[in-house]
Amino acid sequence: MTVQTVSLLLSAAAILILAAVFLRVRVLAHAVEDYAPVQGRAYRIRAIAFWLMLLVGLPISIWLLRDMPYEADATEAQIVNATAAQWYWELDREDVSLNRPVEFHVASMDVNHGFGIYDAAGRLVAQTQAMPGYVNRLVHKFDAPGTYRVLCLEYCGLAHHGMMAEVIVSETGGSDG
């Protein structure tokens, strides 16, 4: 299951649970009960929510930090220099090998751009920003052959939507130069 699908399902589930709570409050609002016991229950729920978020949610959030893309391993990486400009990409290499890390050195010649890699099914698999004056290092290991597209993911002006390039992933790939 992709990260996108997990995110969508998690969001949908949480929103539906929340909607059920609100719906219950709406349906039962016509009934009359003293405020004090209602408030007492709400405070207890609030306390439970607080401790759950602190003892369960917070460790999960910290645990999720283990996969940060900033210092990804790039042993025997294939280097691709990707430079953005209004409104095109320049890649010094378009053919890369499967199952070997590719280290993209992403830069910009003018304004901010976004370097987004899409797989053959049109799913975004990795990205970083392309910023003037900086070189961002993005490491990605392609695990399926095919033609991947690079799209611009940071608004950069008139032909932002036209900035596309291709990366071809195969068993043999291109030369490491």
Binding site: V3, L18, S61, M68
Partner: peptide, 24 residues
């Protein structure tokens, strides 16, 4: 409801591994 529910996908997107494939 809108305020609380809207924060859910926002917080999910603030997770770095998710942001890598959801940002922008």
């Amino acid at each position: 409801f809108g305020w609380m529910a809207g924060v859910i996908p926002a917080v999910i997107d603030a997770t770095i591994t998710v942001n890598s494939v959801m940002h922008n």
